[in-house]
Design a protein around this nucleic acid. Structure first.
Lengths: 125, 125
DNA sequence: ATTTTCTACTTGGTATTGCAAAGTAGTATG
DNA sequence: CATACTACTTTGCAATACCAAGTAGAAAAT
């Protein structure tokens, strides 16, 4: 029932995926996640994820001064991180496949699901 | 990284959805989940979910003797449970939409994702 | 000059939930 | 009587999202 539970694990994969697209830092990741629809995301949710990714060796972290504000920590993905991202995506697809089989049995619901993917990159029709 | 995290919340929705299809009991739900691909699911995972669904008023529970083995607890969905199931499905779709936007940006990956849904009910092509 | 505002990261505590492990019990089969 | 299968319970643990509060630098406003 708690929607936040549905995010478990997904968020970490999304953050890793964003870092995979190019070196970036926490605050920028946060604003990007918000732009993509994860609007109620707090800093206390994101920063622990970055720490975890670093501890696991999936990202590299370097500190650099910001043109405005305090020091930034820039993150970039490692080879290990790339491997893990692929494995995450596969696990994500597998679980979705199983869940969809149970949740969306009739054609109408399946159509709605397909739209979710076909819209893809942007929200327009 | 932990795959089990991806299950969080999804499982409860799936269990509620199975009960929505007709009155059933724990052990049968478990075997059905296993048949659908959730193979490593233990009893210690399922039964607490059933207790939670009952506490929240999403299911009704009645005890009845089994033709073989000890007493069964049969579960059926309530109106409140049906409402919640719909809300769950919507939340699930919304989160998937957001995550897919970030994870599957290129066309090849999107194609792979679509197959997951188009296969739908069974695994054959 | 002081306050406010925006950027940027940290820390501590809580609740939810999946999961492993062990236990309790009833019935049937050998 | 022992074993196996069915069926539910309980306890404890680990991972993680999230809230709240704190630390800090730099620029803009008063």
């Amino acid at each position: 029932m708690d929607e936040s539970q549905l995010l478990k694990g997904i968020l970490e994969g999304c953050v890793l995926c964003i870092i995979a697209k190019g070196e970036t830092y926490g605050y920028e990741i946060l604003s990007q996640l918000e732009k993509e629809g994860f609007e109620d995301l707090g800093e206390g949710t994101l920063y622990p994820i970055l720490t975890r990714l670093d501890k696991k060796g999936f990202v590299l972290c370097r500190k650099a001064k910001s043109p405005l504000g305090p020091i930034r920590k820039y993150y970039s993905i490692t080879e290990s991180g790339k491997d893990n991202l692929e494995r995450f995506k596969e696990a994500y697809i597998q679980i979705m496949r199983k869940a969809n089989k149970i949740l969306f049995t009739d054609g109408i619901q399946l159509e709605a699901m397909k739209e979710v993917l076909i819209e893809g990159g942007d929200g327009r029709c």
